[in-house]
């Protein structure tokens, strides 16, 4: 069974009289433990695809099966539950709660999952130390560097042990060195068996992945395994 199975997915936006086809009849399957990069020019539909994969949005037509469950016709609350259990998001702009410290930000998904306070705290501390931030747990986002903020976001994505980690241009707001560090972190997570899908339009970022899906104008243009995968450490030299 595939972890993700998209069948003839379309997403159209109605802008007055004009219909925008953000995705046209996309079919795609992704298996557990894969590390996939999604590439394409601006406006090609990458974020639209990520939103659908992350159950933030529902397709105009087509069928989406996640873990064998049809999620394309679920309502708002059911999708929220799926997102909470199955998906970990990492955004380009971090999207942390500005007034909460790192620890609380990481605990948040567990609060909505109904996990008790001590269990929550323990899991959050573990996730934070996994991303190397065990000594920054009481810092608020504006007291952290960009790279550290993204690590907090990654810890928040990891804390529920989701089926998939989705990252939409996670290095887009970081300088290249910090970006490389973050990519190294993803690689490490991938090596531990996590399923990771990263959107990027930087070739060198995509080269960390095992598989690259290219999108053009809402269609899948190519889908291939990467032959010479570059280890992050090598690249930084």
């Amino acid at each position: 069974m595939n972890l993700i199975r998209l069948e003839n997915i379309s997403r159209r936006y109605q802008m007055g009289a004009e219909t925008i086809h953000a995705l046209r009849d996309v079919s795609l399957t992704i298996d557990r433990s894969e590390y996939v990069a999604i590439m394409g020019p601006s406006g090609s539909g990458k974020s639209t695809l990520m939103n659908l994969l992350g159950c933030l949005d529902t397709p105009t037509s087509g069928r989406y099966e996640l873990n064998g469950v049809n999620v394309s016709e679920m309502d708002d609350n059911q999708l929220a539950e799926i997102r909470n259990r199955e998906i970990g998001f990492v955004f380009q702009t971090f999207n942390l709660l500005p007034r909460s410290n790192a620890l609380h930000n990481v605990e948040l998904p567990l609060i909505y999952a109904g996990v008790a306070a001590e269990v929550r705290r323990k899991a959050a501390l573990e996730a934070l130390s996994q991303v190397g931030l065990a000594d920054r747990i009481h810092h608020k986002p504006n007291e952290l560097s960009g790279g550290q903020r993204q690590r907090v976001a990654i810890a928040r994505a990891l804390v529920t042990s989701p089926s998939i980690i989705l990252a939409d241009e996670p290095t887009g707001n970081l300088d290249s060195n910090t970006g490389t560090e973050i990519m190294a972190l993803f690689e490490e997570l991938s090596n531990h068996g996590n399923t990771i899908i990263v959107v990027t339009h930087e070739e060198h970022v995509a080269r960390h992945a095992e598989r690259v899906v290219r999108i053009l104008d809402g269609l899948i243009a190519s889908d291939e395994q990467v032959a010479g995968r570059v280890a992050a450490e090598e690249y930084s030299k």
């Binding site: 992350g54 933030l56 708002d76 609350n77 929220a80 539950e81 997102r83 909470n84 259990r85 998001f89 999207n95 942390l96 709660l97 948040l108 998904p109 909505y112 999952a113 928040r156």
Partner: peptide, 8 residues
């Protein structure tokens, strides 16, 4: 953000 990480 809250909805994305699972708030109903």
């Amino acid at each position: 953000i809250r909805k994305a990480i699972g708030a109903k």
